[in-house]
Nucleic acid binder design. Structure first.
Length: 272
DNA sequence: CGGGGCTCCTGTGCGC
DNA sequence: TGCGCACAGGAGCCCC
């Protein structure tokens, strides 16, 4: 479900409402989403702890936890396809529920239960973090390096954009949108992109992610923000999910193919 | 390295 | 109505 803009929106919502509140009650309704440590330890460390800070790396949401006995831990949350993190009243559908000292709840919901939560001492030592590519909205994400790294890859550009070790945070929607705005076919080999095309792609990745954050993310079906509300960017999709409909630029038909097992939308006329 | 298939889950929608 | 299949904002693993 959520890609960088959705996780960023949740982060911004939650940091206004849960910081420094004490966790007074923990209810785990689906054990296997907790990947580390064991359930007992997970619970005892969190109980009476407080979230001091929230940040994001790629699609990973990270809560810095100060435990009751003043240790520093990090609760890492990967929402995968259908995870939601919602602040408010108690939610009977939650997989994990944290009651806070103001009597509100932080609910982790996840219809498909593919999400993963971990409570760790050092989040940077997680494999998913160690192998993660650059943050596309970070100043350190530079065009020369993006260019160099694209030019050494023979794979198709679209699956490459979904590869979190190549670049962090982009998923199926924003890969499709960025390629559309850049006029680049998802089937193109990365190595064949011209300097000009790479520059366009670089700009459009940033642009589409920023725009989506402005609109509080995309709710195609499951996504909800930190208050349980839908995002507004789905109304602004140019290609994603528009198979068979008219391309906004040339009025031609939007195609759908499967690449790396993922539905891939593009306009064969506008995207070469 | 690249790509395909399968897996983890649950739910919905479609064609027959 | 029922059944099976395809598909869904993700990603790890195995195999060729």
């Amino acid at each position: 479900m959520p890609e960088l803009p959705e996780v960023e929106t949740i982060k911004r919502d939650l940091e206004r409402v849960i910081i420094k509140k004490r966790i007074t009650e923990i209810q785990i309704n689906r054990k296997n989403i907790i990947k580390a440590p064991g359930l007992k330890k997970f619970k005892s460390l969190l109980l009476n702890g407080r979230c001091m800070r929230i940040f994001r790396r790629g699609k990973l949401l990270i809560l810095e936890i100060k435990t009751a006995d003043n240790q520093k831990y990090f609760l890492t949350i990967h929402l995968r396809m259908s995870g939601q993190l919602v602040f408010g009243r108690k939610d009977p559908c939650s997989r994990l529920s944290l009651r806070l000292s103001d009597n509100n709840y932080l609910s982790y919901k996840d219809q498909r239960a593919l999400g993963e939560l971990r409570l760790v001492k050092d989040w940077q030592q997680l494999n998913i973090v160690k192998s993660m590519g650059p943050e596309p909205l970070d100043k350190k994400f530079s065009l020369p390096e993006f260019t160099r790294r694209l030019q050494e890859r023979k794979s198709k550009i679209k699956p490459l954009l979904l590869d979190q070790t190549f670049i962090a945070g982009i998923g199926n929607i924003y890969a499709a949108e960025a390629l559309f705005y850049s006029g680049i076919s998802p089937l193109r080999r990365a190595v064949t992109l011209s300097k000009k095309e790479i520059q366009l792609l670089y700009k459009n990745i940033k642009k589409v992610l920023q725009k989506a954050i402005q609109y509080r993310g995309s709710s195609f079906s499951d996504y909800r923000d930190g208050r349980g509300r839908r995002g507004n960017f789905a109304q602004h999709f140019s290609v994603y999910g528009r198979a068979g409909r008219a391309c906004f630029r040339c009025r031609g038909k939007i195609n759908r193919v499967v690449l790396g097992g993922r539905g891939t939308y593009f306009c064969a006329k506008c995207q070469k």
